[in-house]
Amino acid sequence: MKGIIVRWLLGMSGVTLVGCSTADNEMAGGNLQAVNHTLHAINWFSVNGYRAHGGGGSSCCIMLPTKWRPGLKVYIEWEVDTDPYAYSNWPPLGTDGYRAAQAKHKENYQHYSTTMEIPEWQGTDSCGLSVHFLTCNKVKVTTSCWGYGSPNNPIKEPKQMKEPALCPK
């Protein structure tokens, strides 16, 4: 009986949320996802202060308007490790030598930030925000409900891209 009451309460709260989302300034939570297209490690990233671990997968949550409107932007910050496999040559894990090597390695982490416009979505079809990390420290964002790799997903760049010798300005 207790399970039925809990499911009913959850269902009613869902109905309430849907019923309240008709105003143009309403916000809703969505997943925040990273897709790393580079050979570097994305240690972490944040979007408008919502912080997540980088590299792939999704994290809850980011607040987005329920309806797209012109001028929607996000501020993205991220940390890159350009040599994510350096630890293979370090002293054994847990030793002072390992901790010293790790501290020295962290000094080489690079930090980036950018402000991006959120592409238009139709109606209430936003499925959270996916941040795609590309070579030359560029990013693309999408709210597409189609997963990366789907022909319907707007981001087409492959994964495991090597950095070019020169990045365009």
Rank of each mutant, 00 (worst) to 15 (best):
T95I: 03
R99M: 09
K106Y: 08
Q110G: 07
H105K: 06
T114P: 00
Q102V: 06
A101W: 01
K104M: 05
W90N: 09
G94L: 02
Y87M: 14
N89Q: 14
P92K: 11
M116F: 07
K104G: 04
N108V: 01
H105W: 06
H105R: 00
N108P: 05
P84F: 06
Y109K: 03
E77G: 02
D81F: 00
A101H: 01
E117L: 09
R99L: 06
L72A: 05
A100F: 02
S88F: 14
I76V: 15
T95R: 05
A100G: 03
T82K: 14
V80D: 00
V80T: 10
T115Y: 01
T95Q: 00
T95M: 06
I76G: 00
I76E: 03
Y112E: 00
W90P: 01
K106N: 13
A103D: 07
T115E: 11
K106T: 05
S113R: 12
T82Q: 13
M116E: 11
L72K: 05
G97P: 02
W78Q: 02
Y98G: 01
A103E: 11
T82L: 08
K73S: 09
P92N: 08
W90S: 10
T114F: 09
E79C: 10
Y85F: 14
N108K: 15
T115H: 08
M116I: 12
M116T: 04
K73T: 15
T115Q: 10
K73V: 11
M116W: 03
K106S: 07
L93E: 15
L93V: 11
Q110R: 14
A100V: 06
I76A: 02
S113I: 02
T114K: 11
A100K: 13
A86L: 08
K73Q: 14
H105Y: 04
T82V: 10
K104I: 03
N108L: 07
A103V: 04
E77V: 09
Y112I: 04
Y85G: 10
V80Q: 00
I118S: 04
T115V: 13
I118C: 01
R99C: 05
A100I: 06
Y109S: 02
N89Y: 07
T114Q: 09
A101L: 05
K106I: 05
A101R: 02
P92W: 07
G94C: 04
Y109N: 12
G97F: 05
Y85I: 10
Y109W: 14
N108F: 08
P84G: 05
P84C: 05
H111W: 11
Y112A: 00
H111S: 11
